[in-house]
């Protein structure tokens, strides 16, 4: 059983069982594969180098759209234009955080610097956003409903299994963020 993250002399530390690390690694890999931009041979290499992507479109997958939302509420044209300038680097930022977290999953004990913790919290958040879309969490009531699912012996179908995984990721992120907030406090 995992131990909650805590803040102490070594920095922020947590403990994960091998099965939990394996689970997190596969969740992280899933999110990375969703974020990986499609390689397009016709893409202008110079544009790609400076992060431009003129062929980018608003994502059709809801989970991807939640990870890469429109920057303006009521202006799809301006949002798309902004996407062309920024989406590629946003994908790379997210993939970077996810890869960094995956690298820390080699050992049972996870020891994080402040920067490592920040990357972990971003990675766990993206994992949770994707799981929440798969679970169709649309409002606080849906979230409450999923939150009730705590008993692994109840995992009988894909949805209940996903709910348990989501709750595990939520618990882990909450403990991490509490440790991060304590580390902020100690500097205040």
């Amino acid at each position: 059983m995992a131990k909650a993250f805590k803040y102490g002399l070594k920095g922020i530390t947590g403990f994960l069982e091998p099965a939990e690390r394996e689970l997190l690694r596969s969740l992280i890999d899933d999110v990375i594969s969703m974020l990986q931009p499609a390689e397009d041979a016709s893409q202008d290499p110079l544009a790609a180098l400076i992060g431009l992507d003129m062929d980018v479109r608003e994502p059709t997958d809801r989970a991807v759209k939640r990870l890469l939302p429109n920057v303006m509420k009521n202006d799809d044209g301006a949002s798309l234009e902004f996407r062309q300038l920024t989406e590629r680097s946003l994908r790379e930022t997210k993939i970077g955080a996810l890869r960094a977290a995956a690298l820390d999953l080699d050992k049972d004990e996870v020891v994080l610097t402040a920067e490592g913790a920040r990357l972990w919290s971003m990675a766990l958040n993206d994992v949770r956003l994707v799981l929440a879309e798969r679970l169709d969490i649309r409002d606080e009531e849906d979230a409450e409903h999923v939150h009730l699912m705590q008993d692994w012996s109840q995992a009988e179908d894909v949805e209940s299994y996903l709910a348990l995984v989501y709750n595990f990721a939520t618990w882990l992120q909450e403990s991490l963020v509490q440790a991060m907030l304590q580390s902020l406090d100690s500097r205040a």
């Binding site: 805590k6 002399l9 100690s186």
Partner: peptide, 9 residues
Amino acid sequence: DTQEGTRTG
């Protein structure tokens, strides 16, 4: 848990 530590980033 209010031990000393560092913060960057």
